[in-house]
């Protein structure tokens, strides 16, 4: 008994230390078409979210009154998740990341933050290793999401690889399916060419309408995007440009 208690305290001390990013570096590309040995539910109703948000579930139930509403697709090292946690304390926020090591880092970071903050702060954020281009509809019901973030995605410069871009005409239809009417899609990049592409594709999609930049000044998420994401900070350090474009999910104009 004593031994196991000792181990437990040791573990919780370890967890409380924030992980160091340099041990979790992984190249910033992954092929979205390959299988990656991912685990995903057959359909959204079969997803067990209790390990991701334990405070929101009673110990014997997979049911929760709350559903994930905000997702950060390609969350990287989790800067945005951590910044959003106190901004939306009543909403479940999920980061999705395809690179194992990076996802592992974010997981440890959230564990440490939860352990350091006893007041339930950071209980509403979690991370999952996932290929969002393939399996989002397996996790979320239509209209379940209120915000989707696509920040500093892989630019896939080669023309042939444009289909691998996370914002594409095909995938926008899927995001429109998952976002509730009035839900918001955020994009940000430091690559002008990619910014222009994302704007072109979103503008052309009948279910999205751009929110004018001047209306965004009241949106706290924008400050987070520009100042709290790792990529955003890097760009700021290098004094580079940051472009963003935000869209609202609208109803089909003809219906």
């Amino acid at each position: 008994m004593e031994d196991s208690e000792q181990i437990e305290t040791m573990q919780s001390e370890e967890i409380a230390k924030l992980p160091r990013k340099r041990f979790f570096r992984q190249r910033a590309h992954a092929n979205p078409f390959s299988d990656h040995d991912l685990i995903y539910p057959l359909k959204p109703s079969e997803m067990d979210w209790s390990p991701f948000y334990p405070k929101y579930f009673s110990s014997d139930s997979k049911e929760s009154t709350k559903k994930v509403e905000i997702i950060d697709v390609g969350c990287g090292y989790g800067g945005l998740l951590v910044a959003l946690a106190p901004l939306f304390p009543d909403q479940l926020i999920l980061g999705m990341e395809i690179r194992t090591k990076v996802e592992d880092y974010v997981k440890k970071r959230i564990d440490a933050l939860r352990a350091q903050n006893k007041n339930d702060l950071y209980q509403n954020i979690s991370v999952m290793r996932m290929n969002a281009m393939k399996f989002l509809p397996n996790f979320f019901e239509p209209g379940q999401l209120s915000k989707m973030f696509f920040l500093f995605p892989d630019p896939h410069f080669k023309r042939k690889k444009h289909k691998n871009r996370i914002i594409s005409p095909n995938l926008l239809s899927e995001y429109a399916y998952l976002l509730k009417v009035g839900g918001i899609l955020y994009t940000a990049t430091d690559v002008k060419e990619l910014h222009e592409w994302m704007v072109e594709k979103c503008d052309a999609h009948p279910l999205f309408e751009r929110i004018p930049d001047e209306e965004l000044s009241n949106d706290p998420c924008i400050r987070c995007i520009l100042n709290e994401t790792e990529e955003g900070k890097k760009v700021a350090r290098n004094k580079g440009d940051k472009y963003f474009a935000v869209y609202r999910r609208i109803e089909d104009p003809d219906e």
Partner: peptide
């Protein structure tokens, strides 16, 4: 209007 996904049949 192929930009509107009606649903997915999961099973």
């Amino acid at each position: 209007k192929t930009y509107i996904i009606k649903n997915f049949c999961f099973g």
